[in-house]
């Protein structure tokens, strides 16, 4: 396998792992905004996958799809964000185990006068 093939394989594996992590956040939520941010990132990772595929197979046929996606991916999250209401508020309780949150809170408290 050539070095170029290795680079392409690394890029493909990294994009696959990223897509799994993004899907986890879409499924887990907790709020609709988390899901919309994650689905925006999923669209851009699809665009990146299209780009990698173009480079690997030496063609530029899917560039119009990239153009359309980069122009319209934003509409969904704008439409959803417009109609988020206070009923969609999530009491944030699932970050208790997140490392570093306590430090961030202490730092935030220390700077508040």
């Amino acid at each position: 396998m050539t070095i170029v093939g290795v680079l392409h394989a690394i890029a493909a594996v990294l994009l696959g792992a990223a897509a799994v992590l993004i899907l986890f956040r879409i499924l887990r939520g907790p709020s609709i905004l988390d899901r919309m941010v994650a689905s925006d990132v999923l669209v851009s990772s699809v665009v990146l996958v299209l780009g990698v595929e173009m480079v690997v197979n030496h063609h530029v046929r899917t560039l119009p799809i990239v153009l359309a996606l980069s122009g319209t991916a934003v509409l969904g999250s704008i439409a959803v964000a417009r109609y988020v209401s206070k009923h969609d508020r999530v009491e944030v309780v699932d970050t208790e185990g997140v490392p570093g949150v306590e430090e961030m809170e202490e730092r935030a408290e220390g700077k508040v006068e």
Binding site: L7, L15, V37, V41, S45, V55
Partner: peptide, 27 residues
């Protein structure tokens, strides 16, 4: 090779976004 390195950089940024989406505390 340059194109492959650019692809890996883009994929690394996507992976970083995925890790950040999973581990950051709020929206």
């Amino acid at each position: 090779v340059v194109a492959g390195v650019l692809l890996v950089i883009g994929a690394l940024l996507t992976l970083a976004a995925g890790v950040g989406l999973v581990r950051f505390p709020d929206a």
